[in-house]
Each structure stands twice: as structure tokens, then as C-alpha cells.
Simulated assay, not measured.
Amino acid sequence: MTACEALIDGDWLAARLDAPDIVILDATSFLPTDPRDPKQCFREARIPGARFFDINDVVDPASKLSHAMPKPETFLAKVSRLGAGDGFKVVVYDANGGGSAAMRAWWMFRACGHEDVAVLDGGLPKWIADGHPVEDGPERPLAPRDWRHFTPREGGPRVVPMAEVLDNLTAKTAVLADARAAERYAGTAPEPRASRFFGHVPGAVNLPHANFFNADKTVKSPEEIRAIFAAAGAPLDSTPLVAMCGTGVTACVVAFAAFLAGKTDVAVYDGSWEEWGNSDVPVATGPKP
């Protein structure tokens, strides 16, 4: 898959709403501090034919972390019941517009080896603003005959454990990019989830995920993205890049942006600050790595 195939616009999707080989997934999710119910939002307005991909459900049930990547067998069981399977192009979007949860879904499919997955640029808000149709009402579960076979494959981007991030404190073989807002990175703003400590992993650079979006929540150009990475001290070269955030969701915005700019192998530290900020590990504060 090329970068241009990973980001599609509303006109492209509107012309293919009835295509039999495209599966549309609404991955809307909100922070714990946001009172909105993503499933209610889905019932009130969604792209016709979309099914709900719950990033809070497609997780490792054995983990205490909010968004731990599930084992391949768990992932395939979840997505096959949404009609996503081998030979299908998956299009993901969310109601935030900025695409953070949609990009998490995109990254998860790629981590399981499914390359034919794309994000809708600007999400549901731009889809509606551009005059494209929506539907409402409860989602009807697919009958078992409509489930699709999904084959997990190796070779996708890696999930990085905390032990590897700890080792990198001294090895410094990878660049760690923190996608949280600057205030959370500096330790001057509270976390949306319980945290013993505030700040960032020592040496991590700050790449707030919001910086990768235009005012209308569409994604910035590859040239602009490369400039953002370079300015933060994370040039998109052969150096390994690991993204993190609060729970591994907006980290995938960093991974997606890097993909558009030509770096396809960005790993994600799934535990992110939810794990690091509640462990007895080194913590740095302030605006600098």
C-alpha cells in the first residue's frame, strides 16, 4: 500500500458506498473526561453501511491496560464479525474529525498484517460538511453467514513493551515520540486517567498529535509532516521510531503521519503513560526531552 492509498477523501468513498469489497468502520472513541457516548453518536449519525469498531473492546482482555493490542486470534474474532476479512479494503473514520481513534484502528489492522486499510480524511465532520449522506438507528448485527475470514499475518508494525522503552533509556537506539499535548508532556497538566506521576519518559521528544492536522481536521501534507518531525528532533530516517501517548491511541496518529511521509515501520508503546506514569521508573518534567 502506498501513502496516498492510506488516506482517502469523502468523494472517493461516496462513489464506492455500495462496493462489495469495501468495509467501513466507525472507530469513534472519546477520552474519559468527555461525557459523550461513542455508540450513541454512532446511532445518531454514521456513514451508510458503517459498522462500529470499538477500540475499547478490541483489546487484550488479560491486560490491565486500557488499549493493549489483543492477540491475533482475539483481533480476528472481533473484526471478522464486522465483515472485515481477507480481500476486503477497510476504511476507518471517527466522529472526532482528527482521526485519532480511526488511526488506532488503522494501525491495529496493519499490526495484524492487513495492509489494505485507509483512513477517511477529516472523518465524519468533513463527510457531513461536504454534503455526503448519513444514516441513523441501531446497528444490526451481521448474520454468521456474513462474517468474513480474517488471516492475521506477521510483518506489521511492532507493539513495544515497557522493558524495551526502559532499555532504550541507556541504549538510545530508537527515538521515542510522545503524542500527548505539550502541557501533559511537561507535567503541568493532569492526565485524563489516574496517574501517580506526571511528565514524560526521559529523552522522549514531544510530537503533539494535534500538530498533524489542519483547521478542518484533515491531515497535513507529507512535506509539512516531515518538517514537524524534523523540528521535534525526530527526523524520518532509518532510526527506529517508537510512538507513545496516554494509552496508545493518539500514538497511532504519529505512526500514521510518519507513514504518509514515507516511514512505514513505526512501533507503538501500548502501555504509554498509563503504564509508565504508574510505575517506579524514571520520569522527566518540563518542555525539553
Rank of each mutant, 00 (worst) to 15 (best):
S100F: 03
S100W: 05
S100R: 00
S100K: 05
A101G: 04
A101W: 00
A102P: 08
A102S: 08
M103A: 09
M103R: 14
R104C: 09
R104P: 12
A105T: 07
W106K: 06
W106M: 07
W106V: 02
W106R: 04
W107A: 05
W107L: 08
W107D: 03
W107K: 08
F109V: 07
F109L: 07
F109K: 14
F109A: 15
F109N: 13
A111S: 11
C112Y: 12
C112Q: 14
C112H: 15
G113L: 00
G113C: 02
H114D: 05
E115C: 11
E115D: 11
D116I: 03
D116L: 07
D116R: 14
D116V: 02
D116E: 15
V117E: 09
A118T: 01
V119H: 06
V119A: 09
L120W: 08
L120M: 10
L120I: 07
L120Q: 10
L120F: 10
D121W: 00
D121T: 01
G122E: 08
G123P: 03
L124E: 01
L124F: 04
L124W: 02
L124S: 02
P125Q: 13
P125H: 13
P125K: 10
P125E: 12
P125G: 12
P125C: 11
K126Q: 15
W127Q: 01
I128T: 13
I128W: 00
I128F: 00
A129Q: 13
A129M: 05
A129R: 09
D130F: 11
D130V: 10
D130C: 15
D130T: 15
G131M: 00
H132M: 09
H132R: 14
H132Y: 15
V134Y: 03
V134E: 05
E135W: 03
E135F: 01
D136T: 04
D136E: 00
G137E: 10
G137I: 06
G137K: 06
G137Y: 07
P138Y: 05
E139F: 04
E139D: 09
E139I: 08
E139N: 10
E139R: 08
R140W: 03
R140M: 06
P141E: 02
P141T: 03
P141K: 02
L142T: 10
A143V: 04
A143H: 07
P144A: 14
P144C: 15
R145L: 05
R145Q: 08
R145I: 06
R145P: 02
D146Q: 06
D146A: 07
W147C: 15
W147L: 10
W147T: 15
R148C: 12
R148P: 01
R148N: 05
R148W: 02
H149C: 03
H149A: 10
H149Q: 13
F150I: 08
T151G: 14
T151Y: 07
R153M: 07
R153T: 09
R153H: 06
E154T: 15
G155F: 01
G155S: 04
G155R: 00
G155N: 04
G155A: 05
G156N: 13
P157W: 02
P157Y: 03
R158H: 11
V159P: 01
V159S: 11
P161T: 08
P161V: 11
P161Y: 07
P161D: 12
M162S: 15
M162D: 11
M162C: 12
M162Q: 13
A163P: 04
A163K: 12
E164T: 15
V165F: 06
V165I: 14
V165C: 14
V165A: 13
L166T: 13
D167E: 11
D167P: 03
D167R: 14
N168W: 02
